[in-house]
């Protein structure tokens, strides 16, 4: 892939996939937040069941996986090329980047990838591969749906998991802070009127997403 496509092509794919993943984060957050508003977990489980069984979503799920894969493979490829481009570094490191988090995209990216693996093991594999999730009993009635909610609630009882989750999400926030406006720049969308707005929106987006996700374990942990 690295040989076949130009640096800009790779960047364009990188940013398109990034933007796509950012929309996914919004959807995912929306579903997670349902846990806060419904102690019975019914809302959450219904939506989770829908997401897990609806044929269109099932197909779309593979598109999402592809998005992750492309984003990750390209990110690593680009980074390796970048390291090769400067075989010998400076003694005094530069400090002139305008976008601070931009320097650490590979680092934050790799951490997020690891987190994604754990996240998959905890939820996705359990649901899809091992089918080890208990059934959802609502008001004494077996709904026939998997109780994804209880899985979340149980995990967020563990303090180490909560702390790990929060750290991972903060790092995701740093990643997103640069990613949002960077995606627009890579796609050639830079304009003296709108770029400051997009940069601002990027900060807001990354803060909202991070806080949104972090609130959930904190809420569950402290209200147990």
């Amino acid at each position: 892939m690295s040989v076949m496509y130009s640096s800009i092509t790779k960047k364009i794919w990188m940013s398109l996939m990034g933007l796509f993943l950012m929309t996914f984060l919004v959807v995912h957050l929306g579903i997670n937040l349902l846990l806060l508003f419904d102690p019975t977990r019914e809302l959450f489980n219904v939506v989770a069941h829908f997401m897990g069984t609806n044929p269109i979503i099932q197909i779309f799920q593979w598109v999402l996986f592809a998005g992750f894969a492309i984003h990750i493979v390209l990110g690593i490829t680009l980074q390796i090329q970048n390291w090769i481009a400067r075989p010998k570094g400076y003694k005094v490191k530069a400090s002139s980047e305008d976008s601070f988090f931009s320097k650490y995209m590979i680092h934050t990216g790799v951490i997020i990838m690891v987190f994604l693996g754990i996240h998959f093991a905890n939820f996705f594999f359990k649901a899809k591969i091992f089918h080890s999730i208990p059934e959802f009993i609502l008001n004494g009635v077996n709904t026939g749906m998997e109780d994804m909610g209880i899985l979340v609630m149980e995990l967020f009882q563990l303090p180490e998991y909560v702390v790990g989750y929060i750290i991972a999400l903060l790092i995701l926030g740093f990643h997103l802070d640069h990613a949002f406006q960077s995606a627009f720049q890579s796609l050639g969308l830079n304009h003296k009127k709108y770029t400051p707005f997009i940069k601002g929106l990027g900060h807001i987006y990354s803060i909202v997403i991070t806080l949104g996700y972090i609130i959930i374990p904190l809420f569950i942990y402290f209200t147990k």
């Binding site: 002139s96 980047e97 931009s102 640069h178 830079n190």
Partner: peptide
Amino acid sequence: GNCTNTYACEAECPKDISVANIARMNREF
């Protein structure tokens, strides 16, 4: 190397060339 939009180039350019040019090139490309 590949551009990762750190904008260090713009910050250090002695002639203040803007990264808006990079976006324009991405668009052209």
